[in-house]
Design a protein around this nucleic acid. Sequence first.
DNA 1: CTGGGTGTAACAGCTACGGCTACATCCGTG
DNA 2: CACGGATGTAGCCGTAGCTGTTACACCCAG
Lengths: 142, 142
Amino acid sequence: MSANSRMTIAVHVLTWMALVRGRGREVVTSDQIAASVNTNPVVIRRSLADLRDAGVVVVRHGAGAGWSLAREAEAISLLDVYEAVRDGGPFALHRNEPNQACPVGRGIRPALSRVYDHAEEAVRRELARVSVADVLRDTLAA
Amino acid sequence: MSANSRMTIAVHVLTWMALVRGRGREVVTSDQIAASVNTNPVVIRRSLADLRDAGVVVVRHGAGAGWSLAREAEAISLLDVYEAVRDGGPFALHRNEPNQACPVGRGIRPALSRVYDHAEEAVRRELARVSVADVLRDTLAA
DNA sequence: CTGGGTGTAACAGCTACGGCTACATCCGTG
DNA sequence: CACGGATGTAGCCGTAGCTGTTACACCCAG
């Protein structure tokens, strides 16, 4: 449960891209994004690489290189982002295998997996209801 | 999102206590529990301390010391456990404050907090529907 | 008083992440 | 076809949190 911030970084990146896209700037660089997030451009590129693999952003190489959204901000849900930066979900099972001679040690991992799967599915349902455009609206309203 | 296993350990502990309680053993020691979880008794006592603070288990000192469930296993939900081992939820905001001169940097944290709160609330609803007795049943069925 | 068990501090090892440097690679543009 | 700005990625360091362990003070029924 000790959370990392990769999801937050990725959403920030997309929200910023949606903002400047509304101002006519279609292609942006990792340096420009890094200025808003206040971190190193390599961190941004790592995040963008995940999003590119998920088909959420597209990259252009060569002169005038940079990144742009693969589709409208309304069509990018936070579930898309969650899947893109995925790393195993909020819960983890035992680090060391429990005692297999004990009935609880033997059966608890599949039982817990079922519960954890349901909990994560609930998270996905919530994230699916929110788009990057929603986040941008809410961000600018504050 | 990089998960830790404290939730898993705590549920395992309670499930085991519910099992042996059904066999008539009311009071158990951290050593006995550690044998099922396959870890060090101090790890178990740390977990039990969280559960004790949450009112889920009670401790007896002195000779014949040990732990017992504070109430029926049916009346202990995984949400109770989640609250007991709580450490900040599945998502984290930026480690470094984003650029406050940027509209996105300024407004995204409250916007994201709202989304994350909804997602965590969904997790709680799922966990609230499952009791330690349910987990024990499911564990022994496998 | 005794002794078995709890309560907790302290430390080591491991893992993961964020931040950073360095450098190879790519490809419009002139 | 070379140039140059930006990507792609390996590699390293410092930090942080967790697990596992030792050590020892404290508690209290018998």
